[in-house]
Design a protein around this nucleic acid. Sequence first.
DNA 1: AATATTTTGTTATAAGCATAACTGAAGCTG
DNA 2: CAGCTTCAGTTATGCTTATAACAAAATATT
Lengths: 215, 215
Amino acid sequence: MAKNGKISDAVIRRLPKYYRYLGDLLKNGINRISSNELSRLTGFTASQIRQDLNNFGGFGQQGYGYDAKKLREEISKILGLDHKYKVVIVGAGNIGQAVANYAGFYEEGFEIMALFDKNPKLVGLRIRDLEIMDIDDLKEYLTHHKIDLVVLCTPKEASQGIADIVTSCGVQAIWNFAPTDIKVTDNVAIENVRMNESLYTLVYYYNEKSNNFNN
Amino acid sequence: MAKNGKISDAVIRRLPKYYRYLGDLLKNGINRISSNELSRLTGFTASQIRQDLNNFGGFGQQGYGYDAKKLREEISKILGLDHKYKVVIVGAGNIGQAVANYAGFYEEGFEIMALFDKNPKLVGLRIRDLEIMDIDDLKEYLTHHKIDLVVLCTPKEASQGIADIVTSCGVQAIWNFAPTDIKVTDNVAIENVRMNESLYTLVYYYNEKSNNFNN
DNA sequence: AATATTTTGTTATAAGCATAACTGAAGCTG
DNA sequence: CAGCTTCAGTTATGCTTATAACAAAATATT
């Protein structure tokens, strides 16, 4: 752990993977798991796994391992997946609709309350049970509904403006799919999904491997 | 740089961001940029930026800075964005369609050649200029077309199987949107877009910040 | 033209992170 | 139930990555 006592970002980003594999194990009826076995599954070293989990307390037992169900619940609590979250999607284009339609989020407690878009051709259209609303009504909506999380799927030119609006209405978490950097105050959590950067990185490694073949 | 002479992943993943901001600068008619100014824009330290760029050669000039156009071209070459790539999307559901419809990829040289899906209701449907093809014809298609990159947007149960098929047909790059770990041989580049993990991480930080408020 | 300033390239230092090693507790075996 | 094995928790080590410092080169200034 860092000297300031804060858990490092790298650790936090490994937790969802543990969470996923523990879920898989439970589905297969396996309830006992060692750091060694988890290492084999996740690709992280057993040492790292033990250290990661120990940041939050001793969830395991020497000579036995970890109880998969208990451990998964603990990680769930750490991440906050034991709560429900009210979500609004802004930008109901391709990505916005894809997020809205992704059933997996519902299962984990993310409830999509509304979708907004600027495009009159989209406004009024129904996605799942929700009618896409006019973005001009976003501020009004947010002042009357306590929303935890806004998914930002707007074109990059509009993103900062929307972010300003939603944070001014008290929203404290933004999941940003726009390929731009959003500035928010320190009390707002923001997480970027940078598909462009991901793709470019892939291409780099693709070429690196292809070049090897030509040597 | 690491001892083995290989550029570290962290460096590679910063390059797209430099690339993006350099593009923005050029759009605004700015052609001279210092590491200090780039630092202000990207949030990375000037020191890190200089070190990153120096991994690939001295693109700047002391006392002057970097020529934005030249530097952007260099990064383009490093990442391989100066080439064109033929892309096939497997899984034409929400995410597959979103990727297909995202115009930005075309601009950067990624040409979507075909879409495949298993669902008979989707097969035959047109996305942009492309008719969604039956997944049973995927192997046949790949044996007759040289494809650089496959975008995997299938349900997680199907993903490994599809990955096996496409790699056996010589595809050496997979952009995986399925929330599962795909095993590929060492000559295949794989990049995962883990939306679940991104969302869970966001929720962790959201709660961390909210808790602070209650103290 | 001489000097001060800017700014990179590069080296040195420090911080962060991951791996390895160790200790002791619990489970397993004969 | 004694000894052996397993395995988590924890400490120590090593490596990687980021930051800071510095020297040299080019630019800008007077």
